[in-house]
């Protein structure tokens, strides 16, 4: 049984208002005992693997983007069996409403939500504004690790095709709508990693030919919430030049920042076909005989294709 959808003016303007909840809504739901029966499960997913332990929303469980959702050996996400075991241990059933939040404007939370969506989990939502907004509002925090009551979760095979792009898909896609969500310095090729972040080993700097540059954080307001519908339209329909009904691919460096943009395009603006290229620049920047463009111009489709 899924939990009722939040009604408010900002969310109502989005294509899928049921994908977001506000801090106020979540606080009220928790007060009303929503977490007790497993109908609603709150998941924290952060960049820093220890942040949950320093204080989290009371009753929230932790899922780590790297150690829980990635397969250590295959450079891929966990399979259906591992996902079922993971989420069941967190008290999540197939019909649970899952609300995910995290640090850095929900950057990693959006990534976790995208992985839940690979497994077709139906009702998974983001807490608008994430961890920082919750804390800024002085809401309750707990350092007690939540002891979830294990649930049953079926083994569902991942369905990657609708929302995940691989390198060959992107090669075939060049010339059609592509959004590069990295910083301007990464897009132009001045650097291959985020300012103040570790070098992750991409050999070439630049971007995928024809990709538009819309750094991910521009979709977020100062308090970490998503910008409203009109602002998002100005950004993606105006500046990036997307048209209604476009088939869009978003990428970044390892697929996390682009999950945040993927969410905005798919659920807030309502593009039917949006795929996240999780191989992103660490794969593309190093791949043999794969074309790139340096500099601020989007560039043209390479000749011979």
């Amino acid at each position: 049984m899924t939990y009722p959808v939040e009604q408010n003016e900002k969310f109502a303007a989005y294509a899928h208002p049921d994908r977001l909840v506000s801090t106020e809504w979540l606080a009220t739901a928790i007060e009303d005992g929503a977490l007790d029966g497993g109908n609603l499960v709150v998941v924290e997913s952060d960049e820093d693997v220890l942040l949950y332990e320093t204080g989290h929303i009371p009753g929230a469980v932790k899922i780590d983007w790297h150690t829980d959702l990635n397969d250590e050996v295959t450079r891929d996400y966990v399979d259906g069996e591992a996902f079922a075991a993971l989420v069941a241990s967190k008290g999540i059933s197939r019909d649970s409403t899952v609300v995910i939040y995290g640090d850095k404007s929900n950057w990693w939370a959006a990534y976790a939500l995208w992985v839940f969506t690979l497994f077709g989990h139906e009702d998974v939502r983001l807490l608008d504004g994430g961890r920082d907004k919750w804390i800024a509002e002085g809401r309750a925090l707990s350092t007690v690790t939540t002891a979830a009551t294990p649930a049953d979760y079926p083994v569902v095979e991942r369905d990657d095709a609708p929302i995940r792009a691989f390198k060959d898909d992107v090669l075939a896609h060049v010339g059609r709508p592509l959004i590069d969500v990295r910083s301007t310095e990464e897009y132009t090729g001045q650097r291959t990693h985020m300012p103040a972040y570790p070098e992750e080993g991409a050999l070439r700097g630049g971007h995928i030919p024809t990709a538009a540059s819309i750094p991910w954080a521009r979709a977020a307001a100062g308090d970490g919430t998503y910008r409203n519908r009109g602002e998002l339209e100005a950004l993606y329909l105006g500046e990036a030049g997307l048209n209604e009904g476009d088939d869009v691919v978003a990428y970044c460096r390892i697929g996390e920042r682009s999950s945040h943009t993927w969410f905005a395009l798919k659920y807030l603006l309502g593009f039917e076909t949006v795929r996240n290229y999780d191989g992103s620049w660490t794969e593309w920047g190093n791949a043999v005989r794969v074309p790139i463009v340096k500099g601020a111009e989007r560039g043209a489709v390479p000749a011979g294709r």
Binding site: D48, V49, L50, L51, E53, T54, D103
Partner: peptide, 9 residues
């Protein structure tokens, strides 16, 4: 920063 417990650790 306190928000970076791993780095602080």
């Amino acid at each position: 920063p306190k928000e970076a417990p791993t780095t602080r650790g």
